[in-house]
Amino acid sequence: MATPFEKRRRRSLFLTLVLPAFAGAAALSLWAVTKTQVYAYAPSSLPAPAELGDREVRLAGLVQEGTLSISEDDLVVFTVTDGAASVPVTFEGILPALVAENEGIIAQGRLQPEGIFRAETVLARHDENYEAPEVTKALQEAAEKNADL
């Protein structure tokens, strides 16, 4: 049978090994979460480049009409607006098919010191009510037939 001194010694040994390991794991988890968080901003709430530093963020809004241009080498330039403010965006790559002027967009990247948002990823925003193009076309044709009657 273990004496009270041996029990206390085992307990203190357990606490000196387990508690620091647990605290280290918790600190590592919190650090990983803060490093992987990506904040989303509208153009009017986007902080200044100096405030963001080199942190990656998301920019959400509408592609401003008349600003979408795609060069032959897949350099895409457009402006994202929320009605109150606008931010110029550059992106190298192929845009998703749903990206169009006056449509919702989410761009993930970094705000450059000159105020241009350099996107690494571009996503098209759409509502959750998806309707296949064939269904939309069939409904439009049905509506046109009913209008002719």
Rank of each mutant, 00 (worst) to 15 (best):
T16P: 00
V122L: 08
V76F: 06
N146H: 13
Y39L: 14
F91A: 06
T34C: 07
G53F: 07
V38E: 09
Y41A: 04
H126N: 11
T79G: 09
G104W: 05
L62G: 02
A143I: 06
N146W: 11
A143Q: 14
S69V: 00
A143C: 06
L19D: 02
G61D: 01
D82H: 04
E144S: 15
L111V: 01
L75P: 07
P96D: 08
V18A: 12
P88N: 04
P43K: 08
V99Y: 02
A50Q: 15
K137N: 08
A40I: 01
W31D: 07
Q108E: 13
T16H: 12
A60Q: 12
A26K: 10
Y41E: 04
T90C: 06
L19K: 08
N146D: 14
E56T: 13
L19F: 08
G83R: 13
R118M: 09
S71N: 13
V63F: 04
P49W: 05
P49C: 06
K35M: 12
P20V: 01
G83W: 08
Y41W: 02
V33R: 15
I116Q: 02
S86F: 06
I94T: 06
L17F: 03
E56G: 09
D73E: 13
N102G: 07
V135Q: 06
Q37S: 11
T90H: 04
Y39G: 04
L75M: 15
L15I: 01
A124K: 05
L52W: 05
T136N: 03
S69A: 12
E128W: 09
A124R: 05
W31H: 08
P96K: 12
D73Q: 12
W31G: 04
S45V: 07
G93L: 11
L139G: 09
R118I: 03
D73T: 08
T79P: 06
K137L: 15
N102M: 11
I94H: 05
T67H: 05
E92T: 05
W31A: 12
A42C: 11
D54I: 07
E131M: 13
S29C: 10
V87N: 00
A100N: 08
L98A: 14
G93M: 10
I94A: 12
L111K: 10
K145E: 11
T34S: 15
R58L: 08
L75V: 13
G115T: 00
A60R: 14
I105Y: 01
S45K: 14
E92D: 13
A42Y: 06
T79H: 08
T79K: 12
D54S: 15
Y39T: 02
A143K: 14
S29D: 07
Q112G: 03
A107I: 00
T67D: 02
E101G: 09
S86A: 15
A42M: 12
P49Q: 04
S44T: 05
V57Q: 07
V33G: 07
R118P: 02
A27E: 00
V33I: 14
T16R: 15
A40T: 02
E141D: 14
A85V: 03
V99E: 00
H126S: 14
E120N: 10
Q140Y: 11
A84D: 10
A143W: 06
E72I: 13
L52V: 04
A97I: 01
F117K: 01
P43M: 09
V63A: 03
L30Y: 07
A27Q: 02
Y41Q: 03
